[in-house]
Design a protein around this nucleic acid. Structure first.
Lengths: 226, 226
DNA sequence: ATTCTCTGTTAAAGAAAGTTAAATAATTCC
DNA sequence: GGAATTATTTAACTTTCTTTAACAGAGAAT
């Protein structure tokens, strides 16, 4: 990851400058917005990897900014700063999609620790594994294979198998490679098991005439779109 | 805080004994593991407040141990010991969630200083274990899982289980790792017990359509947000 | 053509996980 | 300390997933 850019919305100029300097010293790039409206404008105009919002701000409070940001972006982590540890505030913040919450006064190290913790957490989140197979759509994460609205839930083995085939549409995948990737071992019995799964996948995929899993005798399988 | 227990993984018996004796003399309780595998086993079986890992060890190196530990625990501080000051090693260690890094040779006092510094940092921030799970909010400290105002008090086992799952949203958590982390032992009966708890957690989490605990057959579970 | 291996398919067996209720263990509260 | 409450485990039964078995057909080799 290169340089993480943080948008900091804090109306107190002393604290704002202090925090932004500190964040820059820690290797982040940091932009300071002095009220909620400016913060939201700033967010829409530039790409930020992280947002820190003071809850109490003039013109537009932190919650309102968060709500607007979440209206257009569900991903970017948001951390709230608040003067008092009000429970309702806390809950409200999280309902709006906040990732964490820090009560003033807090130490600089604490802030960094939180920011890093959130970044670690959100970065490790699996990316979208979406595989379009002609008119089908296979979502590896949710394990759903959908075709014109109707959804088929796939099992673990079905998913693993289809994922590899879908990653190689039109290309032959070696039988033993498939076995090793999905079963970990390419012995005879796993091979027979895989054949059963190929049959199952073919059944799921037979709604679309143009989609087919073909066998290359003695070699492997190929998912193809005609 | 009572007695801080340190897990030390060091394959050199001389250095290992020396360090563990020294740490004990400084008021810590210290367990010495002579290789990476034993270290990880030890970690899963007992509660440790701090982990010191030699990078180069037989069977399982320090990085591998750290990776496995972070698979089930994101909190416990990890300090690496390494022979040479390789920059890549350093980076790799930090990516795996290390808290600090010490290059051999180092003085005993230096080690103590680092350990104390990390403990101070991690302890003083009175860790707020708040885990947002889409529209749910799980507070590990108060053991409350809340959803739009209504709160569900969780039991110990429910909490431990949910914590690990929540720390790994979108990522598969190995069944045996979960068992070792929560029950201390991954035998069959604990497994059945865990299945019962998974059912309970699913019931708590079924108010939000987008939140789901999915099973990866023969592997483990995954808490996911669709 | 015959034989052999590889794949296709279906059904049944086996294993893992889901669920509910009852039994046991641990806490809390008088 | 003992009853009541709560937490956890065990048990029993169900469902789902995966493997194995059995048989049939296709393709390659002899």
């Amino acid at each position: 990851m290169s340089n993480t850019s943080i948008l900091l919305a804090e109306d107190d100029p002393n604290l704002g400058m202090l925090l932004s300097k500190f964040l820059r010293a820690k290797g982040f790039s940091c932009t300071l917005a002095v009220d909620g409206e400016i913060a939201y404008q700033e967010f829409t105009n530039n790409a930020y990897d992280f947002v820190i919002l003071d809850v109490m701000m003039p013109k537009k409070d932190g919650f309102a900014v968060a709500k607007d940001i979440r209206g257009i972006d569900k991903e970017t982590p948001i951390l709230f700063l608040t003067a008092k540890s009000m429970k309702e505030d806390k809950l409200k913040g999280f309902e709006l999609g906040a990732d964490d919450y820090l009560t003033k006064p807090f130490s600089m190290d604490e802030l960094i620790a939180r920011v890093n913790a959130i970044l670690k957490r959100t970065n490790t989140k699996e990316e979208n594994h979406l595989y379009p197979i002609h008119h089908y759509l296979f979502d590896y994460n949710t394990r759903i294979l959908s075709f014109q609205g109707n959804e088929q839930k796939l099992t673990t083995k079905e998913c693993e198998l289809l994922k590899i085939l879908a990653q190689n549409i039109g290309k032959e995948v070696d039988r033993n490679d498939l076995l090793k990737a999905v079963w970990g071992d390419d012995n005879y019995f796993n091979g027979r098991s895989m054949d059963v799964y190929i049959t199952k996948l073919r059944k799921y995929l037979n709604q679309d005439e143009k989609v087919e899993i073909v066998n290359i005798h003695g070699k492997g399988f190929k998912l193809m779109v005609k």
